[in-house]
Design a protein around this nucleic acid. Sequence first.
DNA 1: ATTAATTTGTTGGTCGTCCAACTTTTATTT
DNA 2: AAATAAAAGTTGGACGACCAACAAATTAAT
Lengths: 207, 207
Amino acid sequence: MSLVTKQQKIRRTQAEIRVFREKALLRAALVTVAKFDIEGATVARICAEADASRGLITHYFDNKEDLLVAALSNLFNEAQSFKDAIAKDDNLSAITRIHDIANSSFQAPVYTWEMAAAWQAYSSASRFNKAYQEPIRLSTQKFINTVAPLFKLLAAEQPLRLQPEEAARGLFIFINGLWNSMASEENDIRAEEAIMQCDVYINGCLK
Amino acid sequence: MSLVTKQQKIRRTQAEIRVFREKALLRAALVTVAKFDIEGATVARICAEADASRGLITHYFDNKEDLLVAALSNLFNEAQSFKDAIAKDDNLSAITRIHDIANSSFQAPVYTWEMAAAWQAYSSASRFNKAYQEPIRLSTQKFINTVAPLFKLLAAEQPLRLQPEEAARGLFIFINGLWNSMASEENDIRAEEAIMQCDVYINGCLK
DNA sequence: ATTAATTTGTTGGTCGTCCAACTTTTATTT
DNA sequence: AAATAAAAGTTGGACGACCAACAAATTAAT
């Protein structure tokens, strides 16, 4: 289990080292939060996951909290750009795009077990840690800004039971609930059923 | 703020003392979890909330974890009996009873901010603490056992888009998501809207 | 040679549990 | 009914485990 077996002494530039370590620490932070919850994500565990020594966190980040916040922000970027791409596809009808965005929330790369688990840990902790609230608020707003216009398009075709923004918010909250359910070990729900449940909600928005 | 102002030296039997302390500690544990999250619910804080000294937790419970689990189990009893009562009311139609159960989930006494906050903390922590999983699994099952028969009744009147049990599970998960949203400080959603959102889902179950 | 990367022992702090001393209630004896 | 012994309730200091941040020393890159 020595470092030598994992990676032969490779000579790298400092720029490469810096990028490599930062990525490794960000990934390790997310994985460790998913595995052990926020309070279980200790410096020792994160660094072990990243094959780094304990001192490296404070060398590359101000402190542990700073790393955890950065890891949280990272969590959204890929997922959001994926959804944006679907929303912009004019070839598809509004309702198809809404369905596709919901579906993508339960398949890689937008959904992985680790992301759902980490998300649950962060959003629960956000009530007590102001630093987590801003990234979460931002991602919520981005989702609504992406999906509400699609519901507005849909409203032009057939009447809805609620305002476009309310529909987008409801879908976001439902997806969150489904993620939490899927994050639990008991795994009482599968991606297939989650997608179907979203379809039921979207259908319920129609009059 | 002295003890004397709160309660004059009253002579009580040991049985009374025991009941009084246990109730106080259980309530204090729940409130403290709601206020400070699981890891923030320290022995010192719980006992301060219960007007007791630190040593009393181990006198009335095996240890702190034991108290937290007992407080979690307590959380469900009242809420569940309330929903059961609605489900059994034969004067109302199936769909009315489903709506009423959903509505009751966002009004006292079934819903309080503290209950939603504590619930979120416990269910997030349950992935890492086996002791929390059983009470949560049980309450989930009870909800489904209560609501699924109502959807089955409804299915006799008009076709549904999913199985009665799936509909009950979906409603449970959606309510959970709404609770989490309402538990957050930002309070981006109100009871009124939560009830409407549930109505949308229930409507979506119909063909 | 100078700067950056890395390691690891140390420091100061928090926490749950234990425990010995103390108080109040209950049971027993006189 | 009063005195006394036993049991239960209560308190807060002490202990050991754990942790994040720090810092001095070592190694590697420039």
